[in-house]
Amino acid sequence: MSESLPVHREDGELVGFLTEGDGRWTAATVFGYPLSEHETREDGEDALVGKGLSYLAERWAVQRDDVWMRAELVEASPSHVTVQLVDMSHPDRYGERVELAAPVTTGLRLER
């Protein structure tokens, strides 16, 4: 895969990254989590700009001790993402914060 290309909104805000590989473009979050694949760079850019940073407010899960737990993103940047555990089935861990180094491709998933 080639280098990740930053994608910005018109106001300059970073909304994610695009990476080309095998003739397709992968759109990823600001912390490197892959969101979608596209045939063209333009389609990938349009998807990221159109979605904006709304993925930050979506449902996420983080893997801790081989268990997936619900989490909310509390900070996201090109270098890391911080999540807060909000899984009521694990009350002893509720509110715990976990920082993951970017790019995040394992141990975190978007709950669709």
Rank of each mutant, 00 (worst) to 15 (best):
S2H: 09
S2N: 11
S2Y: 06
S2V: 12
E3S: 04
L5T: 06
P6E: 01
V7M: 00
H8M: 12
R9I: 03
R9F: 08
E10P: 04
E10C: 02
D11W: 12
G12V: 04
G12H: 01
G12F: 04
L14W: 11
G16W: 00
F17I: 01
F17R: 04
L18D: 04
L18T: 02
T19E: 05
E20S: 13
E20H: 08
G21P: 14
G21L: 10
G21N: 14
D22G: 02
D22M: 15
D22H: 11
D22N: 09
G23V: 12
G23T: 05
R24Q: 12
R24T: 11
R24G: 04
W25G: 10
W25D: 06
W25H: 15
A27W: 01
A27Q: 06
A28H: 05
A28D: 00
A28C: 05
T29N: 12
T29A: 06
T29P: 06
T29S: 12
V30F: 05
F31T: 09
G32P: 04
G32I: 01
S36H: 05
S36I: 05
S36W: 13
E37M: 08
D43S: 11
D43V: 01
G44S: 12
G44V: 02
E45C: 10
D46V: 14
A47F: 15
A47R: 08
L48E: 03
G50I: 14
G52Q: 08
L53R: 01
S54G: 07
S54T: 14
S54F: 06
S54L: 08
L56D: 01
L56G: 13
A57N: 10
E58W: 11
E58V: 06
E58C: 06
R59Y: 08
R59E: 09
W60Q: 09
W60E: 09
W60Y: 12
A61W: 11
V62W: 05
V62T: 13
V62M: 10
Q63M: 07
R64Q: 13
R64S: 08
D65W: 00
D66T: 15
D66F: 15
V67D: 12
V67I: 12
V67H: 14
V67G: 14
W68E: 15
R70M: 09
A71T: 07
A71Y: 03
E72W: 09
E72P: 13
V74F: 03
A76T: 03
S77M: 02
P78R: 01
H80P: 03
V81Y: 04
V83R: 12
V83L: 13
Q84K: 13
Q84P: 07
Q84H: 11
L85A: 06
L85P: 05
V86H: 02
D87P: 07
D87I: 01
D87G: 08
S89Q: 05
D92A: 08
R93G: 00
R93S: 07
Y94P: 12
Y94K: 01
G95I: 14
E96P: 06
R97W: 02
L100W: 09
A102S: 15
P103W: 05
T106W: 13
T106C: 09
L108E: 07
L108P: 03
R109M: 12
R109N: 04
R109Q: 11
L110W: 11
